[in-house]
Design a protein around this nucleic acid. Sequence first.
DNA 1: ATTCACCTGTTATTTTTTTCACAAAATTAA
DNA 2: TTAATTTTGTGAAAAAAATAACAGGTGAAT
Lengths: 215, 215
Amino acid sequence: MDSKKIHELPGKTIERLSQYRRILYNTINQGKANVYSHELAKMMNLTSVQVRRDLMLIGYSGSQSKGYIIKDLVKLIGSIIDSDKPLNVAIVGMGNLGRAITSYFSGKRDRLSIVAAFDNDTQKTKRIIAGVPCHHIHSIAEIAPKEDIRIAILTVAPEGAHEAARLIINAGIKGILNYTSVPLTVPENIYLVEYDIITSLEKLAFMVKHEPDNH
Amino acid sequence: MDSKKIHELPGKTIERLSQYRRILYNTINQGKANVYSHELAKMMNLTSVQVRRDLMLIGYSGSQSKGYIIKDLVKLIGSIIDSDKPLNVAIVGMGNLGRAITSYFSGKRDRLSIVAAFDNDTQKTKRIIAGVPCHHIHSIAEIAPKEDIRIAILTVAPEGAHEAARLIINAGIKGILNYTSVPLTVPENIYLVEYDIITSLEKLAFMVKHEPDNH
DNA sequence: ATTCACCTGTTATTTTTTTCACAAAATTAA
DNA sequence: TTAATTTTGTGAAAAAAATAACAGGTGAAT
């Protein structure tokens, strides 16, 4: 597809592309080679039109008879959302959440790999945890450039969030995925995605509370 | 506010309300009593107009001189997004992620409380983990009604996701927050929120990859 | 061969969400 | 008092996202 246009993909589409791909991996494992937009839609809980529109935006065409060829589609999505060379990621805060994310990743992606973890608990540092070497947080400025770490996943306790973010930015890392409940304010040139675990639960609670019947 | 209108609150606004409140708790702890829309906006990484509009929609008025009274605003947000009586939540899958969420919650909310956990590992069942009693997944149909569990947070391994979801629905639970990487398809009368950990990371990776300079 | 059912791709429309623009109120300073 | 500043609240406009509508292709059934 026209690379000039990639920048203009709607944010929501990018998010869905990532999800399409994961679902498509599953269906490949089930022995399917092709998939229709309405099948993909059902699995994603959205409409087939939306699926077709997303694929249209990335310039992928299916066939009227067989729908989409899963293998090709997965490859195309990869060419859009993956980095050319692997993008290295660090976990900052190796508690339960940090470990959960790390083990989710282990052996899953090759384009996006967790190469290091950082923590301030010396019990955890200088060891390998969940397959990833865990360093002391104060060595991040030294290790990040060496390991070419581009993204940090922030999973520390709330008290430490600001300080950890400061150290991350100071280490030259430009992307932060914030899983803590503390909202961060970062300089213009830093990419920040807030990912708050509680928000979606409260949204669900709101739905359960307010529409108990007619849903 | 007019309770008839609550249903019509935009989905995005509901999500933000939850976040406003958490930020406001922080600012109370810092000794602030009032806050301006632009301050709140900065902390949330959005614009002051958006803050004012959200508050307008829930019918809260501030003053031109002092902005918003934090205590009142927190209370009003609570009256909208919290349940009248506490809403009971269960964790299904007491791995790292389940424990991370549980410990995040412990002692935090009173309107939304984790009252039970379920797992299929008998090493984990019949014990208290992270302050919550952990039962075998097969007893969920028995325990859910007894404990009035309304929401399940699904944090099992991918292989078990569908089966666990089936058991949850079978137990009469109407709200599912799915943290697994497996997309679920549920009946019409079940509220499902998908919360995929990887999606936001790939979105961030996309941003870091595609706009390295001029950001 | 023709009809039918069922796809995809895409334009047009609608809905939702955000942003703009500005009036009105309160405060501060001179 | 008066002018300047700063804030909220909100109608109107713009932008983003989702949905509807439909043209056109493909294969299967009769």
